[in-house]
């Protein structure tokens, strides 16, 4: 096997220039967990590897200038995202999702930009990032563009990035005031496995206790994270009913089957885990309605 050339650009522009030159024959390496695995198992044979490890400015976590979102540099690791105090308070479901990927060794290396651009259907963070309407900043020869996570993920290992584009950061909006959120992962084989079903939920309650907003995104059951806007709209204005939502999503989805579960099994797990995720999100609502007085 011929060995790929490795480039160590020090700026994003340099990295883009190399990618542009190789026109699809180069792979970007961030934490390296996904690319190394694919190389070792001969699933890819790129002519060049473009390592981002010497590019400055891709490791920061902080509030955006307008203060309405958290910006995660593409090279921020899962472990750093999971334990970052601001992200944990501003978007708990996102921190939740990064905290349950793989095992500690993987989380210490795998990056925020890497997991999105790998676009593996059975990853935890994409569902959470989709639920909170995160966007990525993609840099190419013509400059930067903003791509919502929804538009970035196109299919199995397929993204909307051009061959000469790099994700430089992921921008996570703050949760709406009073909203609660959670990401729950169900693994059918072992704790460090990829999810059989992952559920991201955001819940906001009206002063009268009814549902003001609910968002549910299902991971690992299809090529890309699944969101069902009609079910979200139908739940608004009614008492929040986690079990009812579980049933509704189980009926609405068309799950794939793989080694982690059959389509039937996944549907039943959607039923259970949607209800649990919505319940967990509701528990985290702040400033919501008080329970009715006793008696």
């Amino acid at each position: 096997m011929s060995q790929p050339l490795v480039f160590f650009p020090t700026t994003v522009a340099e990295a883009v220039e190399v990618l542009d030159r190789y026109g699809g024959e180069a792979k970007v390496v961030a934490g390296g967990t996904a690319v190394s695995l694919m190389l070792q198992h001969r699933l890819i044979q790129p002519a060049a590897l473009v390592s981002l490890q010497r590019v400055d400015g891709l490791r920061e976590v902080g509030r955006t200038e307008e203060g309405t979102a958290v910006r995660l540099g593409a090279l921020v690791t899962h472990a750093e995202a999971a334990r970052h105090p601001f992200l944990r308070s501003a978007a708990p479901l996102v921190a939740d999702a990064f905290a349950v990927v793989g095992n500690p060794q993987v989380r210490a290396a795998a990056t925020v930009g890497g997991v999105l651009t790998e676009a593996d259907y059975a990853s935890d963070p994409p569902a959470a990032l989709r639920a909170i309407d995160a966007v990525v900043i993609a840099q190419g020869p013509a400059g930067a563009r903003i791509i919502p996570v929804y538009d970035l993920l196109l299919g199995f290992y397929e993204t909307a990035l051009a061959d000469n584009e790099i994700v430089s950061s992921v921008v996570v909006p703050l949760l709406p005031e009073g909203a609660g959120s959670a990401y729950l992962k169900y693994s059918s084989r072992s704790s460090e496995d990829r999810p059989c079903v992952g559920v991201a939920a955001v819940v906001r309650q009206a002063p009268d206790g009814s549902c003001a907003e609910v968002r549910v995104v299902l991971g690992a059951i299809a090529a890309v994270p699944v969101r069902v806007p009609e079910l979200e709209a139908a739940a608004v204005g009614r008492p929040l009913d986690p079990a009812g939502l579980g049933d509704a999503y189980a009926e609405a989805v068309d799950p794939l089957e793989d080694v982690r579960g059959s389509a039937w099994y996944r549907r039943e797990m959607v039923r259970v885990w949607v209800a649990r995720a919505v319940t967990a999100a509701r528990h985290r609502c702040t400033g919501g309605p008080q329970p009715p007085p006793a008696g």
Partner: peptide, 11 residues
């Protein structure tokens, strides 16, 4: 701790 089997050598 990191898994050296999926860590690029140059990292």
């Amino acid at each position: 701790p990191v898994s050296a089997c999926i860590l690029p050598f140059y990292a």
